[in-house]
Every structure is written in structure tokens, then in C-alpha cells.
Design a protein around this nucleic acid. Structure first.
Lengths: 117, 117
DNA sequence: TGCATCATATCGAGCCTCTATATATCGTGG
DNA sequence: CCACGATATATAGAGGCTCGATATGATGCA
């Protein structure tokens, strides 16, 4: 249960970007990993896709940190799936993430469009 | 002169973020590396800071790709500085970067705030 | 003379994503 | 009936990029 910092900083953009997408998707309803990847890929019009080698390690970490909870559903002969849902700490973390992203992007876009003085 | 892709993608956020800050600052006027770091740090209210071990390698790459041009100014006994300015390809690259950031952030914020269906 | 600041540079460590590979089931087409 | 693609999860190794540490050297101030 590593202490996880929701502060979005320049050097952690990709990581927090991926977390935000995953947690936001789970906020819309619990789903398993493969489904999650499809959801984000479709929802973004094919722009944001998760490679499996990227997604599963992230899910394991989020689970290890208690932000999401995975439950194996043994669906008989249709194999096993791990259904993830957002936990209460996860909900709070996601809210903090949104705020942090907001302030960072505000400063970024401002700096990027600044006029020549 | 590696072919540089201005397409901002989830896995290259930090890199393109840093490039955007640097090129935007140079668009406001030529300056040398140390000055650049101070400019961005001040302009962002201390939020976006460049470590020297990060900044100089990036500048070297941007210069190698022809997006910025460095010129050593030997200021007598006050030491040597390398003054960077934006080149024409750099101006075009920065414009493409802005567009790419815009579309990515649009989709990202949309996905992140999507309501439960 | 010593210290902080200015100024540039590079190397190794560490983190994170990607590619490739492995395993297993299911449905479909040849 | 078998091969293949899609569904589904998992991990190890490679590579890229930032960070911390370290080095060099000049200037100005106490």
C-alpha cells in the first residue's frame, strides 16, 4: 500500500494520464481489464489505446495501492475474468487527480500561448 | 536531423510537454539555457522547473534536429554562453505541437468528465 | 579566501511503457 | 476437424526519458 501522490507533475504526465483514463472508465461502471482497454479505445475514437503489457501492470499497482479492487469471476467454461471496481479511496484519488490535472493544464496552456512581451 | 514527430501521444506527454515549454519560451525571444530554465520556472509560478540534467540534453537534441539554433557568445571574461533561437522549422513544429496538444487535451478532458451512461 | 550564483555538460540510476512471448478458451470458416 | 482470430490475463526484457550527482569554471561579495 504505497502512498500514492495525485499531484500531476511534468515528469509524471503519462502515468497520471493513464491512471485518469482507467479510473474514469471504472467510475462509469466496473469492468475487467480487456473490456477496459476496449472502452477507452472506443471512447477516444481510437486515439488512446492500451497495450496489454502496459495495462495489466498498471492495474496490479492500482489494486496493490487499494484504489481499485479486483475480483475473480469464474464463469464456468468461459474462463476466468478479473472484474475491477473503484474503491472509496479510489474515488477520492480520482477527484484529486481531476483537480490536479485542471490546475496543471491551466498553467500549461497559459504559458504556451503567452505573447511576446 | 532525425525526423521529429509533433504528434502528442499518451506515451510521449512529458517529452512533448517539455518541448512545448522550451520552444514557446524561445518564441518569446532568444535566450541561453540557464535563462530559459529561470524563465519557465518564474512564468509557471515555480510549478514547472527544469533540472539541468534534463534541460541540456533536450536542447542538444532540438538543436541536432534543427528546430533551434545555438550560437556561442564569447563575452570576454564573463565566460561563454550558448544563445538559442527558434529556427523556421522550429516555428512550424511549435505550431503543429500546439494543434496536437489541443486535440489530445480535448479528448482527454472529455473522456475524464464523461457521465455514467 | 570561501561561498553563492551563473553557466554548461555528462553519466548512471530509476521509472515507466512497449514488444514479445506464454497460456487458455471460444467461435467461425475452410 | 483443425486452424485462426478474438477474448482474457500475465510477465520478462528492451528501450527511452527524466533525475540526481558530479564536474568544470568564471564572477561577485563578504
Amino acid at each position: 500500500m504505497t502512498e500514492r501522490d495525485p499531484a500531476v507533475e511534468p515528469q509524471s504526465l503519462t502515468k497520471h494520464f493513464n491512471e485518469a483514463l482507467i479510473l474514469s472508465s471504472l467510475e462509469r461502471g466496473p469492468k475487467h481489464g480487456y473490456q477496459l482497454a476496449l472502452d477507452i479505445e472506443e471512447g477516444s475514437g481510437g486515439r488512446f489505446g492500451f497495450k496489454h503489457g502496459t495495462l495489466y501492470p498498471i492495474l496490479h499497482k492500482l489494486e496493490g495501492d487499494g484504489l481499485i479492487a479486483g475480483e475473480w469471476t469464474d464463469e464456468g467454461q468461459r474462463g476466468k475474468r478479473k472484474r475491477y471496481r473503484l474503491t472509496q479511496p479510489g474515488v477520492r484519488y480520482l477527484e484529486a487527480l481531476r483537480v490536479s490535472w485542471g490546475t496543471l493544464l491551466e498553467r500549461f496552456t497559459h504559458l504556451m500561448e503567452e505573447e511576446r512581451s
